[in-house]
Design a binder for these strands. Structure first.
Length: 257
DNA sequence: ATGTCGGAATTATTCCGA
């Protein structure tokens, strides 16, 4: 079973690129973030033609998350309870015995902005909600754009970025709370010493300068982690394909037994 | 170059968010 997460930065702009990737990588279940699209506009026919059913929690202009799946899934939650006014950022489904949750965590903008405090509060709500509805002894995958660099290895320049947005102790503590509850960062677990990024700014040639961040993760509970055979960041799909513009994020893909 | 994208408000230009 191939699972993936990908912030596509606008479904309207990215649909042909997403179709290209689905055909090449053949995932079984995918969490998508930043649809920037209302539910009524979702191109269900295009997804069905590619072999996928789409479940979405959309919003006009910003945010929005989806799960694409080859098999039917049961929707367990649309929106993070108590945080709905911070945008469409949470979608929880069950695929057979696997809980699959996709999140687009708040960016926070900068430390002086109201959104930074709201980001921390959103994470607290997420941890509380998941502890209510999940069991760390059962298989679950939490995937998405977390907008946090977990450690110095996950940023192109910890020296210049330490203490800034994505790099604060307060944010890292929020991520650690999810880990302490029972999630494992699948990429870091299988590649403990590799510096690899999942996001590069469009500006300034950041991709070619290797100035990126690892902020997109697949987190797994122990029973799900035991099934993981491989995990990679699909850096090739951060590049243009057949003249189609890429997202500023690369997909993260894991293969489970 | 505060360097690029995507989306929306407005009608080719500006703004916002990332």
């Amino acid at each position: 079973m191939r699972v993936a997460t990908w912030n596509i930065n606008g479904l309207n702009a990215r649909l042909p690129f997403v179709e290209h990737w689905l055909a090449a990588r053949q995932p079984d279940i995918v969490g998508l973030q930043e649809l920037k699209m209302v539910d009524d506009k979702i191109p269900h026919l295009a997804f069905e033609a590619a072999g996928y059913k789409a479940v979405t929690h959309g919003q006009k202009s910003w945010n929005g998350v989806a799960v694409l799946s080859r098999d039917e899934v049961e929707v367990l939650g649309r929106g993070l309870p108590g945080q709905e006014d911070f945008g469409a950022r949470f979608l929880h489904v069950r695929a057979r015995d696997l809980d699959f949750i996709t999140v687009y965590c708040p960016n926070g903008k900068h430390l002086g902005h109201d959104d930074y405090a709201r980001k921390l509060a959103w994470y607290d709500t997420l941890a509380e909600h998941l502890a209510d509805v999940l069991d760390p002894a059962r298989p679950a995958i939490l995937g998405g754009d977390f907008n946090i660099c977990p450690s110095p290895l996950d940023t192109w320049n910890e020296d210049s970025n330490a203490g800034d947005i994505f790099h604060t102790d307060e944010e890292r503590a929020r991520l650690r709370r999810l880990i302490d509850w029972g999630f494992t960062d699948v990429y870091r677990s299988l590649h403990p010493d590799t510096q690899a990024f999942s996001w590069w700014d469009y500006r300034g040639g950041a991709f070619h300068r290797k100035q990126g961040l690892r902020i997109d993760f697949l987190l797994a509970t122990e029973p799900a982690l035991q099934r993981v055979n491989a995990v990679e960041i699909d850096r090739d799909y951060r590049k243009k394909k057949d003249g189609l513009q890429a997202s500023d994020h690369a997909p993260v893909i894991a293969d489970l037994a």
